[in-house]
Design a protein around this nucleic acid. Structure first.
Lengths: 235, 235
DNA sequence: TGCAACCCTGACGCAGCGTCAAGGTCAAGC
DNA sequence: GCTTGACCTTGACGCTGCGTCAGGGTTGCA
C-alpha cells in the first residue's frame, strides 16, 4: 500500500495535485488507514498516470473524466475540439508576439511609422516638445477610434505642411501655449485662424465624438488654447 | 468630461477592465463629480489606450506601468524577456498539440505503439482480456517510471514469446486467475514457475520500487495470483 | 526520546477580468 | 411630477490548476 507521497512520486506529480484531483472528483478517494492517511494501490497509480497524460496534452481537468469513459467516436470528437482550442491559443500568442515586435523605440511604441514621421516634421518646424506631445496624444486617439481613416488623415496632414499660412498659425499657437488667457494677442490670432478656416476646403474628418474628444484635449492642455478655441468658435 | 462608459468606449475596452486597472493602480483614479461618478479627460483616454496596447501585446498588467516609464534600454530588455516568455508558452502549447495528436484509439491512448503490439501478441496467444488489462496497467506504470528502459523491456518481452515453456506458464496463469486460492493446482504451477526461473538468465529489470509496485498490482488483481506469488517467493 | 520527514484539513493567492447583487443617478417621454 | 431605461457606484464570487503557508497529528529512525 502506498501513501499519497509515494503515489505522487510514482506518477511524477505533486502531492498537492493528487489532492486537487480528489477534490474535483477526478481521482477516487481511497480508503484511509487508522490514522486517517490515504492508502493507495497500484491501480491508483495507473489512474493517476492516465489523468496526467491527458492533462499534459492540454485537456482541461473538467473534461478528463468524461473523456476517459468516452467511446472512440466522442473521444475523437472531443480531442478535435480541444485541439482547435489549442490552435486558437497558439494563434493568439503568435499575434501577441507580432505586436510585441512592433513595440520598439519611442513614440513608435503606440503609433504607426507614418504618424511618427508626421511628428518628426512638426519637430523640424521648430514646434516645442510639449505641443508635439499634445499632437501625439491626438494621433493616438485618432488611431484608436478610426484606424481606417488614418492613412487619409495622415495624407491631409502631410499636405497641410505645404500651406505656409497654416504653418505660421501652427507655430504661433505653439508660442501661445502658455500665454495668459486674457492676452490681447489671442484675439488677433483667433481672427487669423478664422480667416484661414474660411478659405480652406472641407475634407474628411473624424466623427463628431472623436472631434469633441480631441477638442477637449486641446482645451485642457492650455488655458490660452482654451480661450483661443472659444474665440474661434464664437460667431 | 467623460463618464467611465464613454472612456471605455473610446478606448475599446470594457468598463470592468477600466475599474480593474484603477484597482491595481495601473490607471490613476480621476476626480469624482457631485454624485460620486468618475469623470475623465482626454488624457485618460490616451493613458488607457497605451495600457491596452501593451496588454494586447501580452505584457502582464503588473509590468505595464514600469514599462511605460522605462527608458529605451530597459524597455527593450523587458520586451525581450516577455517575448521569451511568449515563445516558451507557444512551445508548450505546440508540445501539447503533439501529445494530443498521439491520443488516438484504444490502448494506444497511453502507451507507445511498440507496447500496444506486445499486448496484441498476448491476445493472439488466447490470453483473456482481463489478464491483458493487468499486463497493460503494468506497462503503463513501467512506461511512466522508467521510460528510458522501455525499449529494452519491450525487446526482452518480445524475445520471451519464443520461450514455449514461458508461454505455457503464461496461459496457465491466465487460467488460474479466478481459481480458489486454496486450489491444489496452484502449488504445481508455482513449482513449474520456480523451475523456469531457475533456468532463465538474468537481464535488465525495472528498479526495486517499480518492481514492488508491479508485484502489488499483480497480487491485488487476483487472490489466486497472490497465493501463487507467495508460493513462488517461498524457499 | 527527540527530530526529521511525512500526513491531515482549510484557506488564500495568482491573472484578468466576467458577472451577478443591490443599490443610487440621470435624461427623456408621458 | 412620475416612470422607465440606461448609466453609475461598491462589493464579492467565479474561473484554471494547482503553489504555498498555517496549524496541527503520525511515523520511523538514531
Amino acid at each position: 500500500m502506498l501513501t499519497i507521497g509515494q503515489l505522487a512520486a510514482h506518477a511524477g506529480v505533486t502531492v498537492r495535485a493528487v489532492r486537487h484531483y480528489h477534490h474535483c472528483g477526478l481521482l477516487a478517494e481511497p480508503e484511509r488507514d487508522s490514522s486517517g492517511y490515504r492508502r493507495y494501490d497500484a491501480a491508483a497509480v495507473v489512474d493517476l498516470i492516465r489523468i496526467r497524460t491527458m492533462a499534459d496534452a492540454g485537456v482541461p481537468l473538467a473534461r478528463i473524466d468524461e473523456l476517459l469513459h468516452a467511446g472512440q467516436e466522442e473521444f475523437a470528437e472531443a480531442v478535435a475540439a480541444i485541439d482547435d482550442d489549442l490552435r486558437a491559443r497558439i494563434r493568439d500568442l503568435i499575434r501577441q508576439r507580432r505586436r510585441m515586435a512592433e513595440l520598439v523605440g519611442g513614440e513608435r511604441l503606440f503609433l504607426p511609422a507614418e504618424v511618427v514621421a508626421v511628428l518628426e516634421r512638426l519637430r523640424s518646424l521648430g514646434v516645442s516638445e510639449r505641443t508635439v506631445r499634445v499632437e501625439r496624444d491626438m494621433w493616438i486617439m485618432m488611431a484608436a477610434q478610426s484606424p481606417e481613416l488614418l492613412p487619409e488623415l495622415v495624407a491631409v496632414k502631410n499636405a497641410s505642411f505645404d500651406d505656409a499660412e497654416l504653418m505660421r498659425l501652427y507655430v504661433a499657437c505653439d508660442e501661445a501655449f502658455d500665454w495668459d488667457p486674457r492676452d490681447p494677442r489671442l484675439a488677433r490670432l483667433a481672427a487669423d485662424m478664422k480667416a484661414w478656416a474660411a478659405r480652406r476646403q472641407e475634407h474628411e474628418d473624424v466623427g463628431p465624438g472623436t472631434r469633441a474628444l480631441l477638442d477637449s484635449h486641446l482645451t485642457a492642455s492650455s488655458p490660452a488654447w482654451e480661450r483661443l478655441m472659444s474665440l474661434v468658435a464664437a460667431p
